[in-house]
Write a protein that binds this DNA or RNA. Structure first.
Lengths: 208, 208
DNA sequence: TAGATTGTTAATCGATTAACAATC
DNA sequence: TAGATTGTTAATCGATTAACAATC
């Protein structure tokens, strides 16, 4: 349990959850590492190795109970609890993130959206409150929000990140295409869509 | 040049571009691997190692010319050409992707959007044409589109992917939370936002 | 018990880091 | 020439794969 756990392992756990949900929905209550691996197109070794960092989830000679393993992984990932998050920026991307179904399924609840543009503020979009960016610190404290999702233009991302950190946020998902310069006590996950696309253009280029 | 190039190296090239753009905009025409690495919070070794897969971009004793290296990396990533792409699905996420600035900067041009919902079709949103999903194959051929970006609900993602493949698309960016089961000749990059968030909840959980 | 599959230890593979010779 | 920094080879580190003993 105290061995260094690769970050890749953590990411894969999410994919394992997906696969398990599939088997559960097919009413296969028991599933083997071989079956899961085949579905996920990885090796069964990797799956078992990854799980072994966290404990004993299966029965030798039998396999894994879908329900058990789902519960186990959800617990590891902290998805058995409620996580209160906010989205900063209510442009197209902010809008998409605020209403993203996948988050709710994982216990992540968007409690507030913050926006600069006065015309968008104080409206309620499908049970979602859009607040004035100026009140961000206040609302985050009141609503006990712990996760910040940054969906503002890159020029203001750094400033927003600093403000989030200053009011106690220690986990940030950053969708602005900038490297945030923030205390490493704060966990940051960066997603840059255009970097991902550049990988595709690279590979396409190799072929041509 | 023919050594196996790690996928991580390719991803990092995009980040190097970003950093170089920063130094260029600061009017620093020459930059060393040490300076770039410091900015990017990586080691200078890694930067040089990564670049060495592709050739000689610097001058010993001097450093790298920003302009040269930018051009070089853009060429490697295929960003010096025009790439014609389409977005499938015009929900919140599709809308965000269609108008994402970062793509245009990288030579990726969204030529068409496809959507099921008849009420959204045939309208033009800021120079962006929204077509009936039924005409997808036809438009892709006519517009010579090479990259598909999937932003539909997970239940229809697999079907869309198959259709894209069938009409010649060999590069897909998938934002639906499903593993696409598609011929491996097709390059696929998957981004699952909720998996990324799960990494944050995992790390938050460790602290608590 | 025999068959099957897990969990873990060992072996392999690959990526990152370091060191240094080449050279501007 | 002396100083600096690259590009590359070698060393280290870590992750994945394989093998197998434990056990259901």
């Amino acid at each position: 349990m105290d061995k260094r756990i690769p970050e890749e392992t953590i990411t894969r756990l999410s994919y394992y959850l997906r696969a398990l949900a599939y088997f559960r929905d097919e009413h296969r209550s028991i599933v083997s590492s071989r079956q899961l691996a085949q579905y996920l197109k990885i090796t069964p070794h990797q799956l078992r190795r990854d799980l072994s960092y966290f404990g004993h989830f299966g029965k030798q000679g039998v396999g894994y109970s879908c329900e058990n393993l789902i519960d186990g992984i959800r617990k590891i990932l902290g998805l058995d609890r409620e996580h209160r998050a906010c989205v900063v920026g209510f442009g197209n991307l902010g809008r998409a993130l605020s209403s993203y179904r996948g988050f709710q399924d994982q216990g992540i609840i968007i409690k507030a959206v913050f926006e600069n543009d006065k015309s968008k503020i104080n409206k309620t979009h499908k049970a979602l409150k859009v607040y004035d960016l100026d009140t961000m610190e206040k609302v985050i404290r009141e609503e006990n929000i712990r996760i910040g999702i940054i969906a503002v233009p890159k020029c203001s991302a750094e400033n927003i990140a600093q403000r989030l950190y200053a009011c106690g946020i220690r986990a940030i998902l950053n969708l602005a295409p900038v490297k945030l310069n923030i205390d490493k006590e704060c966990i940051i996950k960066e997603i840059d869509l255009s970097c991902q696309l550049a990988y595709l253009t690279y590979r396409l280029n190799l072929k041509a």
